[in-house]
Write a protein that binds this DNA or RNA. Sequence first.
DNA 1: AAGCCCATTTGACAGAGGTCAATGATCGAA
DNA 2: TTCGATCATTGACCTCTGTCAAATGGGCTT
Lengths: 218, 218
Amino acid sequence: MRARAICSDLDEPDLAALRRLGRRVSLAAGQTVMWEGDDSTVVANVIAGTLKLSTSTGGGREQIVGVIYASDFIGRPFGARTPHSVTALTDAHLCLFPRSAFDHFARDHGALQHRLLRRTLDDLDRTRGWLLLLGRKNAQEKMATFLLDVSRRLQLDRTGRFELPLSRQQIADILGLTIETVSRQMSEMKRLALIAVEGRRGIRILDREKLACLAEGH
Amino acid sequence: MRARAICSDLDEPDLAALRRLGRRVSLAAGQTVMWEGDDSTVVANVIAGTLKLSTSTGGGREQIVGVIYASDFIGRPFGARTPHSVTALTDAHLCLFPRSAFDHFARDHGALQHRLLRRTLDDLDRTRGWLLLLGRKNAQEKMATFLLDVSRRLQLDRTGRFELPLSRQQIADILGLTIETVSRQMSEMKRLALIAVEGRRGIRILDREKLACLAEGH
DNA sequence: AAGCCCATTTGACAGAGGTCAATGATCGAA
DNA sequence: TTCGATCATTGACCTCTGTCAAATGGGCTT
């Protein structure tokens, strides 16, 4: 699991030094760690749990701009402001670093900085892919894309079922839709036997092929 | 102008070494430098001109995922695939590097890598901000946000006028709208005396205050 | 097992923005 | 200067998704 983390290339002494900078923090689902616009004072590694990154318009409309899984990195190194809020979707554990200490450490450790760069480049690619979804896909395409994306990121249990880490409203906030539209799309896909819905959060993908077609708009 | 470029922190010998890796390339408006999905074989610094980054759905709908100005960086270092197409919007000059040579150079030069990291973090923040625009803003808010954004990025002439580097269709492809909606929104803003439109590309912002209000949805 | 709360689903309707088509402006080439 | 081609604007209409309201049901407490 540490293999994905940014500290995975550090040797043992450096790793120990980094650990001394950080402290473990537990979060309950719903707790917000950082607020959009605040000073950027801390960064963190996610040990366990799922979190969301979000921004809002003046009028209170929210858009989720990223979903963070275990071994991901959060916060804004080398910057004065936190560009978006970070909120736990499930209970979570973080390894929290003061930003300035982390920044210094990173400057002195090329391997860490390199990891961070690669991760940031990947995030940027993924986020730009999301622009296509928000700007040019319709509700059905969005929903299909989302379900495939989540099923790829989460480990399924042996029966192919997985738990959405998000409520319908949060899915809507990711896809730029309303909760009603999300619900209608899920019902429609259930009706078409593309997915099975088990309880509020359980999903089983029945026809990955067709779902992928819908995601591309065919 | 070099102050914004990623090589701005290199000392003279390193800079000379980097320059030896690259070659100058001229582009005509409309030329595409890299295609979405292709192998990532080159990266480049933009010396002059404006370019777009874009992706498309299977069905041919296009979304512009970034606009690149002079002194920006293009291409995908440390990655096998080009995640989006890069096309010149105006005539442009690049300093083109083979990706593998650039990657090696960057690994050996912490200062360059640091610059690249900072730039990528900024890009990521900007792109995530754009998600809010695409997911949660209406056509009027999108258009107002866009005009303010461009006027901030481009130097205005003494009369406060600036040239859009983009056609109406391209603006639509940035904002996730159709060309007709973009046109209607511009006409409406002209009617409200928020902007003056001079020729196809000329814009003068008459009431920045109110435009900023519209951008926020008030 | 019953009951409650709240997330979710479903329905009816409205409006923003897309689509299609026609008209009008701008710019480069002849 | 004129022409033609392309880009942009405008209008009419329609569809998708948002809005508002009501019904349903999952999952928790008692």
